[in-house]
Design a protein around this nucleic acid. Sequence first.
DNA 1: CTACTGATGTCTACGCTGTAGACAATAGTA
DNA 2: TACTATTGTCTACAGCGTAGACATCAGTAG
Lengths: 217, 217
Amino acid sequence: MAAQGLTREMLTSAALRIVDDDGLHALSMRRLGSELRVDPMAAYRHIPNKGTLLDEVVEAVMSEIDTDAVDASLPWQDRLRALAVSYLATLMAHPNAAPLIAERSLRGAGSLRVVEKALRIMTDAGAQLGDAIATIDAIGLLAAGIAQASSASVEQAEATAGKPLAGLPPEGFPLLAQAAAAGALSDGLADVFNFAIDAMIAALEAKSPSGHGPRVP
Amino acid sequence: MAAQGLTREMLTSAALRIVDDDGLHALSMRRLGSELRVDPMAAYRHIPNKGTLLDEVVEAVMSEIDTDAVDASLPWQDRLRALAVSYLATLMAHPNAAPLIAERSLRGAGSLRVVEKALRIMTDAGAQLGDAIATIDAIGLLAAGIAQASSASVEQAEATAGKPLAGLPPEGFPLLAQAAAAGALSDGLADVFNFAIDAMIAALEAKSPSGHGPRVP
DNA sequence: CTACTGATGTCTACGCTGTAGACAATAGTA
DNA sequence: TACTATTGTCTACAGCGTAGACATCAGTAG
């Protein structure tokens, strides 16, 4: 007997809000119900189980990416980079949902739309389909990992009392200790992303038969 | 009153066996206890909570990697590749544990040992520490993603009735449909890994001041 | 207007989870 | 022999996802 009736969209957006605000572990059917002032079981009139609710949340996040925002007149390298950056930005806007996305993307149309767009950018530039898939796979997983890592200190590492390496014996791991001290493991994650993207783009360029991007009309 | 007394190692190896055999979801404290013919609560005499048990499982898997197996006389590119390949091979030997490793590596000495080794290979070759970190981050996340994806069809996708893209409208996603038909999304995952590694290595080579690998004595 | 039908929200209950706290039994030492 | 620390057992609690019965309502056919 809520306002005027539950909808799938209300469930999805409430679920995403819970995840954003209080983390993935806070999203339970009971919590979802109480958020919508409704019996926990009411959700099951609109979704078959919690798994599909999670899929819908992933779809909601992935649909925030505007694949048409990349300027078509730019060279393919820049378009690919722009798409990847906006993908990462979207994940960073919902870092608590990143594990979800890493696990359950490639299912709904919203996610596939982004992948298809990236594939087209690369194959239009002359890349092999297999190499293009390798590139988005690597970039997608990396972005999810980065977004997840960026929120790990907030949600999860509070159980381990601080940074991942805090309290580690610096002797035996001199390079890691040095990197941790320089903040390269947490602050420099955007650099990680850029480095990987540039590496993949350069590899695609090297493999492409023509020296510069071909333009197939 | 079991055989002669529980140990942390018995718990860890039993936990890993459960994960390997029946998946991550099958690992509960009750199941762990029944596997060892012991009360579920007995485990808590040796570990503070389930989370540290999971950390131990990650450590056990990571410790299977033999970082000294890579021939030190090889050029750094080959050594890095060998290390990455043996990392992926280890993950593929425990695909059900891959999500665990993606989430909880960089905590115990066993994991850090591998990372430190990779860092040293790269920095010895003249790479910047930041670039080296970017490389292992990307490779590590990618390997975990690949291992996870390779088992996803077994453990998880049985709920979604088959391959990720099965039952998708091919129109609208022509490239993805083509890739799925060619098996590039499941069979070609090793190629994804090789492509990414080669790309990262090439990027490191390009950034390194000296054209070929320097040898610091 | 009545009676039926389908949709939607509610309630109770089951088996599962991690784990706190009391109790029992055993091993090692003074 | 008596005390103590360690380790396994038992019971119990709050939480989880969700199956199934029941209640309430909107819309339609007679």
